[in-house]
Design a protein around this nucleic acid. Structure first.
Lengths: 215, 215
DNA sequence: CCTTATTGACTGTCTGGTCAGTTATTAGTA
DNA sequence: TACTAATAACTGACCAGACAGTCAATAAGG
């Protein structure tokens, strides 16, 4: 019975194991240069077994990206909650979270790389990612900025139309690390603090404005 | 003689034509998925001819990236000139230039894509790019920030340690456009203005600081 | 008729995808 | 318990097509 259990469990765990191995190989070599024999070897099986669970290399790639995206989609929910307290405090905790889960986490960075590298081969991947992950994230940021303006805490600025500007240092840190490796990573607490500091100053009302607005 | 001239010119122009065609194909499909037959067809020749000028596919790729990088290296010179006038004015004209030559110019964006996608296959490419293009650019930015601080125009901020923070919106715009296509591009004058506005506020001394500093 | 740039047919290799066969396990039977 | 059949998971040898790289033949110029 224990053996039966183990055997049944294999079937349930195989797809996940294959996706895990595929992610590593795709991230390292890109779609075209990744060999399914290598994916199989990394998963401790043979190529034939992959085809028991995925109909083709393309499907395996799509499944890999979707699987790796799942966490960010779930995390997004927290962001859409009704804001309360200081807008800047919300932004602070938001970006602390984003740095931990996007800059520090290698997997998230590698997804960025894979998407960027393969958009021309898989055009709908980027569209989907924008619609399901990035678009809502931008909207959530925009709501925080508007909330801050309504509260008299922030001035009206381009950050309302382009929340991307606030998010940009995250992308910068991701890109930097993707290109130059962990050894030359420029992030860490100091970078995050610098980002928050510049953002706070950039968004804030000038003292006299704040006074006249009644904060 | 006119025909001889034409024939001799072919030999001089071939490498450039091949590099041009190779750039388009590599940018579209990445290194592994690019077929030399396609490169040749785009250049109006056959595959054999490519091998008269480049010893292998890898060398062709390296030559392509180097060729495409040349303009940015040359442009960099302007940045290292001794600064004068308002630091913010320098930053304004600098970023106007960078947007025109990095965000609007498709070729520069595609280089970013290619480097990011192929770093694992060509590790020294990224190192070289950092040493010759990015590193000096960061240094130049840092000098402008220091100049602004020395002038009493800017406060001391993380932008001195991480000029990347100032540059980040450019990378964001590049990445956005690379991933989602020209149709969804978020740049244009409004984005640049927003970037400059947030940056100006983020860097500037507060009015009372400025007053006491004596500007 | 020599030189030189170019061709295009050819080769060897590599890899996505297939499938007949092997192994491990369970169920049934006596 | 011993033997057999059925089944599910997996294997690994194989194929077909694609593609980097080669080179003898060709054509164009002088």
């Amino acid at each position: 019975m224990a053996a039966a259990e183990r055997r049944r469990r294999r079937k349930e765990e195989r797809p996940g194991e294959i996706l895990e191995a595929a992610f590593e190989e795709f991230a390292r070599s890109g779609f075209a240069a990744t060999k399914l024999d290598d994916v199989a070897a990394r998963a401790g099986i043979t190529k034939g077994t992959i085809y028991l669970y995925f109909p083709s290399k393309e499907d395996l790639f799509l499944a890999t990206v979707r699987e790796m995206n799942r966490p960010s989609q779930e995390n997004l929910a927290a962001l859409t909650a009704a804001p309360q307290g200081s807008a800047m405090a919300i932004l602070r905790s938001h970006f602390a979270f984003v740095y931990a889960h996007m800059v520090e986490d290698r997997r998230a960075r590698e997804i960025l790389r894979m998407l960027m590298a393969e958009v021309s081969r898989f055009p709908d991947l980027a569209d989907r990612w924008r619609a399901e992950v990035i678009g809502p994230a931008v909207e959530a940021l925009r709501r925080v900025v508007r909330y801050g303006i309504a509260r008299g805490e922030f001035r009206a600025s381009a950050a309302e139309e382009f929340p991307h500007l606030l998010f940009a240092p995250v992308i910068m840190a991701c890109t930097w690390r993707l290109m130059f490796g962990d050894d030359h990573a420029l992030d860490g607490a100091a970078y995050l603090e610098g980002h928050l500091d510049l953002m706070a100053r950039g968004l804030a009302c000038l003292p006299e404005e704040a006074r006249s607005a009644g904060e």
